[in-house]
Design a protein around this nucleic acid. Sequence first.
DNA 1: GATGAATGAGGGTTCATTCAT
DNA 2: TATGAATGAACCCTCATTCAT
Lengths: 212, 212, 212, 212
Amino acid sequence: MRGSGSRSARPPGRRAEKGAATRQAILDAALDAFSAKGFAATRLDDVARGAGVAKGTIYVHFRDKETLFEELVRAYLGPLVGTLTASQPTGLSPRAFARAIVDVFVREVLGTRRKDVLRLGLTEGARFPELAQIYYREVISKAVPHLRLVFGAAHAQGALRSDALARFPHLLVAPGLVAIIWDALFSRFEPLDAAALMHAQIDLIFGPEGDA
Amino acid sequence: MRGSGSRSARPPGRRAEKGAATRQAILDAALDAFSAKGFAATRLDDVARGAGVAKGTIYVHFRDKETLFEELVRAYLGPLVGTLTASQPTGLSPRAFARAIVDVFVREVLGTRRKDVLRLGLTEGARFPELAQIYYREVISKAVPHLRLVFGAAHAQGALRSDALARFPHLLVAPGLVAIIWDALFSRFEPLDAAALMHAQIDLIFGPEGDA
Amino acid sequence: MRGSGSRSARPPGRRAEKGAATRQAILDAALDAFSAKGFAATRLDDVARGAGVAKGTIYVHFRDKETLFEELVRAYLGPLVGTLTASQPTGLSPRAFARAIVDVFVREVLGTRRKDVLRLGLTEGARFPELAQIYYREVISKAVPHLRLVFGAAHAQGALRSDALARFPHLLVAPGLVAIIWDALFSRFEPLDAAALMHAQIDLIFGPEGDA
Amino acid sequence: MRGSGSRSARPPGRRAEKGAATRQAILDAALDAFSAKGFAATRLDDVARGAGVAKGTIYVHFRDKETLFEELVRAYLGPLVGTLTASQPTGLSPRAFARAIVDVFVREVLGTRRKDVLRLGLTEGARFPELAQIYYREVISKAVPHLRLVFGAAHAQGALRSDALARFPHLLVAPGLVAIIWDALFSRFEPLDAAALMHAQIDLIFGPEGDA
DNA sequence: GATGAATGAGGGTTCATTCAT
DNA sequence: TATGAATGAACCCTCATTCAT
């Protein structure tokens, strides 16, 4: 590993590598802790223990608890933006397009720890205006108009009986969000299959599979 | 002032009346405070100030902060349960029935402070297992099967093209819940009309107005 | 003490009395602690222990450590202002007037715990701009011009050979201040009699006793 | 770079030179920081940044923060001792001798950064007993008796009307010290000319210029 | 010698809760 | 029932100091 044959790059450096690893360990532990107990109830002591570092080390990498939280959300949700807006309806039926979006959501959010971060965003977001702003700017304000265009065109061409999805593309993901929240509240009484719920919504919108 | 000499009629009595009024003032102030800052960030000092009482007085009426929160949710959401489960499809089309439910939700929840309490339930519920349990037992476990029956029958009779709503009646209210959360996060950037969103969902499910 | 005979006043009230006593106990303990260790090195734990209260109690009476410090200085030095500016030279020779001022200083400052507070003001004042401002406004800006007038008149009438004291009345108290600082630094090696030092300064200015 | 091959002349050596420069840079930065914020409020981080070195480097040159502070005072005030005690009254009038001392103080202390270090000694000295001891041993215990002798002789010869200066030579420098403190507290409201203050003191003691 | 990430003890501050009045 | 001063446990954050590189 000491340059192991490659004549190149030391730039990141041994120290910097270590630093980045520590930072990531803290983010991971923070995700666990914040997910389990929420922002306020999470003690930095726990995060430190979870990351295997001293409490002070957190402050080497993050200004304060709030910043740690915000960078956590950013780190996990940021990369998602590109993926979502990359979806192109090229040659896809409205149903297939909607289905593709839902599948991305199922795979990239519900199937990963991103769902935990997203839940944090939903439940704690009101207390982090700046976070909400970033999220709105980066995700919402890009995705919603994009979907409006696509579904608006489909409706105009008669491929969609209702213009509801064009006016409120939110409806495509709403079930997924509710499922995430349900999971935190009621899963011990009655699990709710988020993917199935989202697919059911598609069935509702476009009729049962093989219909249209 | 002691009511001495007053016939002291009416069992609740002046004192009790006063007590009840104080209790209600505290609940009101608590709703304001918890709605604005969440459970953890709300200081009982603020609640006391908002209610115009001393901090200690809160403890005359509620065992602790958690109990105050739970009783707040119960006080606001409890009465709703009866209303919801009272809805009978007698002689209504599936669409009209769904519409009736949504209208109740719009009127009784979105149109009142209950929406704030519901939001608190959604965002803080994970940290209050007992609350979630009560809510599940009182509302969810009654409403969901009820709706399943109704929409299942409608589907069996061909009045609903998809069985999705029978399997996941959640979809009827999901948009309303998402709108409530949206409001807390993004209303300053882009308001979202919760009622319109719920109606759009009905359009999606049953086709545009006047369709089916 | 329970209203001891006086039929009157409960206004301060038992509770308020207690509160004021606690507040004073904290101020006293703070004076001990700050004097002994300086502002930064003083732990609020020590102040609390010294006052016989819990640490949190300090925050019932003072916003924070800084405020505690400032109110301490104000409480001890404030009342002094009136005394100082009350000195009137009516019918006194310059020497007698100067001597009177020095005597007030010796009695009211050097002879009381005010000297400790004054020392705190001198050594910590640079870090408390607001405190310096108050002290300048309340004491300096009143005393200096007052003394300038008096000694200026004395010089004009030939009662003072030099106009130095008119230009720099500071010189009257300077030895006292230096003695206070000396005490904190060198008293264990060689005590310095502050009163004697101030009187020696008067001798220097006006000639030995019985001279002028 | 290892000096290998270099004649490696001059004992201190390149490395040592570099080391000494670093050490001096740290002392300079420390003076700035301690002067501005006092001992306790100064962070070694700031000193390091000011010196353009890493925090750890400070510990290469100084055992700890306290040592850094003490060596700072010693480095700046040490050389002064010789200068002060070198003053000889040979053939000078008491006034001229006093004036010479004051002039040295004005030039060597007030006119240099030594005044900042001296202020630090005055305001922080109580928390550094060892420092006070050194200062007492090196400066005070030499200067005071020396001056006592000189002014005592002058008084005995009738060249000084009062023996005050013989008993308390402190009075010669006291105004300078007060001016230094004033500067830190009140210069923004009303500047005080330290040199003029000291000269006024001489006028007070010996009569106006050209008098005696 | 120089670095800077990591440490961890320490202390200021908050706030739910208690209780004497 | 109402009060509000007092409590003390809990927790965030700071920063002098260390040490592997």
